[in-house]
Design a protein around this nucleic acid. Structure first.
Lengths: 192, 192
DNA sequence: CACGTTATGGCACTGTGGGCCACAACGGAA
DNA sequence: TTCCGTTGTGGCCCACAGTGCCATAACGTG
């Protein structure tokens, strides 16, 4: 497993765990990279090799989930109505074990509650929206940058965010359930 | 008009104009506050008194438009269906003179095309969403942090962003028209 | 034991943002 | 005219994110 060269001094997971502990204790803004580095037992410069920015520490392996998300969409039979296919994928995407490390609730509370992270999230979600736009484009025969694919991508994110905000107000609720409820609410809202 | 005390050395508008020129010439990231300050003929420290951050320079008087936005919603008769009331207000909000200074196209192209600004925009749009959520809450008898008000706020922003992205691909189109088209597309998309 | 390979981490630098404070430039009162 | 309160300016200093550069440490292999 180990090739040639000096072995790694740490892992993404170790950094993530330590960072989340410090963020919980001192707050995100009041936790300099310098401190995380010393707690992990590694140089500050090394942290930036594992994560391109302090913000990105909070997303964990989000990017790795995009492949599965795209695969789930691609596997949907084309006779399923488009909106149902997309909605199902979005709901499923938000259904995962809550006992992750760090806990999903803590992660989302941190992101949604920290302005810098909330802002950064748009950049992370852009690829997620692109996956939806690409699927809608294929199903409708349009290009991914046409109006409808883009609209569906943005609206899917909107529903997810509304659900997340509610969920953080009451964690006992089911997150996928809230996404579904948000969609039902939107459909009723827009129904003539 | 001038009270006691030292007169101002510059104005928000003057800073905005100079900054946009430099952003166009050199790009946003390659334009340090130091340079903007010297071009305006003012100290760097003073810039931060006029705008809380470099990002905020690009939004101009956005916050001042929120009052009119809320007023437009409040003035809508309650017998207008809720979704139409909100949609109308959103469409109207995006209907304004294109020959502003700096030009609206340049501003939006800068914001949508610069990752740092795109990220920052969520923070600016939060208040805009809050206006919508408050209105929906009043009309439905819910609280502003309930699921539907939040959902409608997020979705309204989603439609606007999709329209903006399309508009920047083809500026000859009508921006309010694209917002309307995005809504039509969404309703068709969600219709059974 | 030398060699290539790979990761670390120190150093120096740019740029944002903010605290602090001396000081400049006004209008008005003595 | 001079002094005074008021208000904006801008210099100085600092914390911190992020990046390029490079010496060096720690592996596996021949």
């Amino acid at each position: 497993m180990a090739g040639p060269g000096r072995p790694s001094a740490t892992t993404h997971a170790a950094i993530e765990t330590t960072a989340f502990r410090l963020f919980a204790e001192r707050g995100f803004d009041a936790t300099p990279m310098e401190l995380i580095a010393s707690e992990v037992g590694v140089g500050r410069r090394t942290l930036f090799r594992y994560f391109p920015s302090k913000n990105d520490i909070c997303w964990g392996a989000f990017d790795d989930t995009l492949g599965g998300f795209a695969a789930g969409l691609a596997a949907t039979p084309d006779d399923v109505p488009l909106w149902r296919a997309v909605h199902r994928a979005v709901v499923d995407f938000n259904d995962f074990p809550l006992d992750a490390d760090p806990p999903h609730e803590q992660r989302m509370r941190l992101i949604l509650g920290t302005p810098a992270l909330q802002a950064h999230s748009v950049l992370r979600y852009a690829q997620w929206r692109a996956v939806i736009a690409a699927y809608v484009a294929r199903r409708t025969g349009a290009t991914p940058d046409a109006l409808l694919p883009r609209t569906v991508g943005h609206v899917s994110l909107a529903l997810s965010l509304a659900a997340y905000e509610r969920w953080l107000d009451d964690t006992t609720a089911s997150l996928p359930g809230l996404v579904d409820e948000a969609m039902t609410g939107l459909r009723d809202h827009l129904a003539p």
